[in-house]
Design a binder for these strands. Structure first.
Lengths: 140, 140
DNA sequence: CTTCATCACTTGCATATCACAAGTGAATAC
DNA sequence: GTATTCACTTGTGATATGCAAGTGATGAAG
């Protein structure tokens, strides 16, 4: 395991956030969990963005160390693990939504769903509730 | 200049955002401009996080290429340049605020101003307006 | 008009991180 | 037992980062 992610420790909230999930891949994984219902290693590997397997393993470990996700054996198939967002990880939803809004506004090739983009503006609270509900840790 | 920043081009808004400003330093620079009124190279260099000068030059160029900031000579002192947020860069404010909110909630050593954190919850719209007003491009 | 200081970078180089390919080991399936 | 799936690990070259030192264009002082 490549020991990475040194913390800047300045107390600045932006630096803290960047040190926790501010790399090229962590939010891609979070997005897959939050918006696409993915929960296994193989599903994350299959993402359009082609994450390398060692980087994926490293990021999952890091996100777990940071308490954003948790890892459990799948009771249905004991050779796989299920990764789930913790409440702390789920609480990144507003950040993810604001990023979607921004990119939808400025990326001419965006594939962001217009329905979601519209709802971010018109019913932010409701959308947040729905996403958080769908990813509630107690849900199975 | 180290040519970096390859784009993933999948159309995913999260990937687009990460490719545009999702590195260890870009949002630190944006924060300095947005929340701390910094606008010169020397001011960015002096940040608590100790950004290396070559990385700073590279990121400023990148942010300029992406249209998030603009660079002008300082009319008061022609040997310095002023960096300012464009409307596209200013529109990152909601993302920055959500990151502040998240970090303030989960970093036990946060130095986030309680006044700001409270206002993010209680008067999000007003706070956004104020920050955007303060950084309006036409202001001098 | 020469010298000196400031400001915004560039360049070089050691170190760290990433990406790609291939390999390992545990849990089921047959 | 043999094969297959799944979740990783390991090795190696490419890329990016961090640090120190150097450069060129103002502008200020004498």
């Amino acid at each position: 395991m490549t020991r990475s992610k040194s913390k800047r420790q300045t107390g600045c909230p932006i630096a803290f956030a960047l040190d926790t999930f501010g790399d090229k891949w962590s939010l891609i994984i979070i997005r897959d969990m939050l918006m696409r219902g993915k929960e296994t290693y193989g599903e994350f590997l299959a993402a359009d963005e082609k994450i390398a397997t060692n980087i994926l393993a490293d990021r999952l470990q890091h996100l777990q160390d940071e308490g954003l996700i948790e890892k459990k054996r799948d009771p249905q198939n004991r050779r796989r693990y299920l990764y789930r967002l913790t409440p702390k990880g789920l609480d990144l939803t507003p950040i993810v939504l604001e990023m979607v809004r921004w990119s939808a506004a400025y990326d001419p090739n965006t594939k962001a769903s217009p329905a979601v983009v519209t709802r971010i503006q018109s019913d932010r609270e409701g959308l947040l509730k729905d996403l958080i509900q769908k990813n509630k840790p107690e849900r199975d």
